[in-house]
């Protein structure tokens, strides 16, 4: 068992969302270990990369990765979801160091990230903005407003990673990648458990258009 998974095992009580948590684990590890320019010392640095966990459900893997990277003490994990714990079943940016947005309601992270990418560009900051959404989260129409504008405004600082655990009702095979591609995004689909493939896909920053990485993790 990796350090991250042993840290995850400290968190109990949200079994409804545990499948959601493990589906994101590999993507989160690759982002924090190999891709994002972030650290606990730079949580207020304007030049840091931004990671928005839009799919706030099942944040155990997220908390475990942040704790392992030193954003907050590992001792916080065991009490998660308790009245005195800063770690809720959906994360709150005002309570947890390193958490960039408070999420839980689906379909907000990508629109927020579009605004953030615009704000960074307006200030001449070259940081990346990476948003993790779920395949079923893309049911929310707000995402489609956002992905259209992001391409139109050529927000190449923006990367969406869709963790596809085939949880959407009414899914159509291949639709996710095609949907983004139609709007002009750079789009790839990779095995969401393969760290090297994920790193290669997530480290790539397209020029003149936003990027999407569809990480297929299979239904659990």
């Amino acid at each position: 068992m990796s350090t991250t998974t042993s840290l995850m095992s400290l968190m109990t009580g949200d079994e409804k969302h545990s499948a959601a948590a493990t589906s994101t684990l590999d993507v989160l590890r690759v982002l924090y270990e190999r891709v994002l320019d972030v650290s606990p010392e730079r949580v207020a640095d304007a030049d840091r990369d931004r990671f928005y966990l839009s799919k706030g459900h099942g944040p155990m893997a997220y908390y475990a990765v942040l704790a392992e990277r030193g954003f907050f003490p590992e001792s916080w994990l065991a009490g998660w979801g308790g009245y005195d714990s800063p770690l809720g079943h959906h994360p709150d940016r005002n309570l947890v160091p390193g958490v960039e947005i408070s999420s839980g309601s689906l379909g907000h992270g990508l629109p927020l990230a579009v605004g953030t990418a615009l704000g960074l560009r307006a200030q001449g900051i070259g940081s990346r903005v990476v948003v993790l959404v779920g395949d079923a989260e893309l049911d929310e129409g707000s995402n489609h407003e956002a992905l259209e504008l992001a391409a139109a405004l050529e927000l190449d600082a923006l990367t969406v990673v869709v963790v596809d655990n085939r949880s959407a009702s009414y899914a159509v095979e291949g639709r996710i990648e095609q949907r983004f591609r139609t709007e002009g995004w750079h789009a790839v689909t990779v095995d969401g458990r393969d760290h090297d493939l994920l790193e290669k896909a997530l480290a790539h920053r397209a020029v003149g258009c936003p990027s999407v990485v569809v990480a297929e993790v299979g239904r659990r």
Binding site: G115, I125, S142, A146
Partner: peptide, 20 residues
């Protein structure tokens, strides 16, 4: 943002997250 009011508000909030 075009005729996209959900996006309108969250783009504003996303800008605010960068300090604007």
């Amino acid at each position: 943002v075009g005729i996209r009011e959900q996006l309108l508000v969250n783009v504003g909030a996303g800008l605010a997250l960068t300090g604007l």
